[in-house]
Write a protein that binds this DNA or RNA. Structure first.
Length: 166
DNA sequence: AGCCAGTCTCGGA
DNA sequence: TCCGAGACTGGCT
């Protein structure tokens, strides 16, 4: 059994993201759904003080990131279940300041697997915490866009707000 | 075995 | 210069 996931909405100028927490920290961040599903909290779950405090960090970090600013503080991230390779990729991305980009190849070099370029793309696509783990700052060679699991419009928008010419 | 959010090379518009 | 095809890649399911 996977641990319980507590979901909380995070309202932003770009819509309502949904953050999911385990007892280890922030485990996932979901894009605002286009079809604003109202859907019913049959009974409102009770959140621990710890989850509420993590969620405050998530909300302010998200607000900053969406504005193209640096994130001051993140809640602990729960990467349970991810492979070492994926975590290595995501760790590299966390150190990338806003407005700075890397190519998939550069990320591959940074984790010591210079030829694992395609696998880096795969790891980015598997990123459960978009925006805060800035996979949008990874471009294809030649400063081309490459792909984005959240949709290329999001990638363009996020990069534009960080002042990256696209 | 097959699928990629890649990259490189080479050939033709 | 700008593509498309093909070869090659490494991690994941």
């Amino acid at each position: 059994m996977s641990p319980a996931l507590f979901r909380l909405p995070a309202e932003t100028v770009d819509g309502i993201f949904t953050a999911g927490y385990t007892d280890q920290g922030l485990a996932e961040l979901n894009w605002p759904s286009v079809s604003r599903a109202p859907s019913r909290p049959a009974q409102k779950p009770v959140f621990t003080a710890q989850v509420r405090s993590w969620h405050r960090l998530t909300e302010s970090a998200l607000k900053a990131a969406l504005a193209g600013r640096g994130v001051r503080q993140l809640p602990p991230l729960d990467w349970t279940g991810a492979t070492e390779f994926q975590k290595a990729v995501w760790r590299v991305l966390l150190k990338l300041a806003p407005g700075r980009t890397r190519s998939y190849g550069e990320v591959a070099v940074a984790i010591g697997r210079p030829r694992a370029v395609r696998a880096v793309g795969g790891a980015c696509g598997a990123n459960p915490i978009p925006v805060l783990v800035p996979c949008h700052r990874v471009l294809a060679a030649g400063r081309k866009m490459g792909g984005f699991s959240g949709g290329l419009e999001w990638k363009r928008r996020l990069l534009a707000r960080e002042g990256v010419p696209v």
